[in-house]
Amino acid sequence: MPTDSLGFIFLNALLINNFVLALFLGICPFLGVSAKLQTAFSMGLATTFVMVISSLCAFFINQLLVAYDIEFLRLIAYIAVIASAVQLVEMTMKRFSPALFRALGIFLPLITTNCAILGLALFQTFGDYNFTQSLAYSLGAGGGFIIAIVLMAGLRQKLELAEVPAIAEGAAMTLMIAAILSMIFMGFAGMGGGG
């Protein structure tokens, strides 16, 4: 598969270079909001939603920055726009879809400081992706985040029934599971090569 095809970009972000388990982006929600399956899934959905929106915003901002040759303002512009985009999404959602807002609303403010969002915007810029490639990349990254956080939540729910030594409860145990998940995801690494 050629490396710039939409399918490859999507798979790459989804599995091969999974944002959470291979690139260490979005670790805070991954460790913090993965105690319950339902919440984890909602968090994943909300993150994907914001990822797609901010990825598109970032694409157009970058065009603008490159046109005026002021790329050194990229970081400031991205973070400001992501923060306002999240706010805007939150307000729109509250107004037009209260049900969706109830499901995802409380997660939206947290997502602003989720490094996966800014990371996505930066990586798509470094990778010189065009509009559709950016879209595929953000969908893949969001999907990858959902997979990782849902897997983690499922495992943690099972773990509640297990007897864990007192000192390993909480974050230490979660990190150990993450290590194993991350090893599993390393198996996807060869998918892009070979051909």
């Binding site: 390993a168 230490a172 150990m176 290590a179 090893m183 390393m186």
Partner: peptide, 19 residues
């Protein structure tokens, strides 16, 4: 030095501190 190692070592440090 690969991603799993990061999780593993941090987990071990947290275990040590908890202990």
């Amino acid at each position: 030095v690969l991603p799993p190692g990061g999780f593993l070592v941090l987990g071990c440090w947290l275990l040590l501190f908890a202990w």
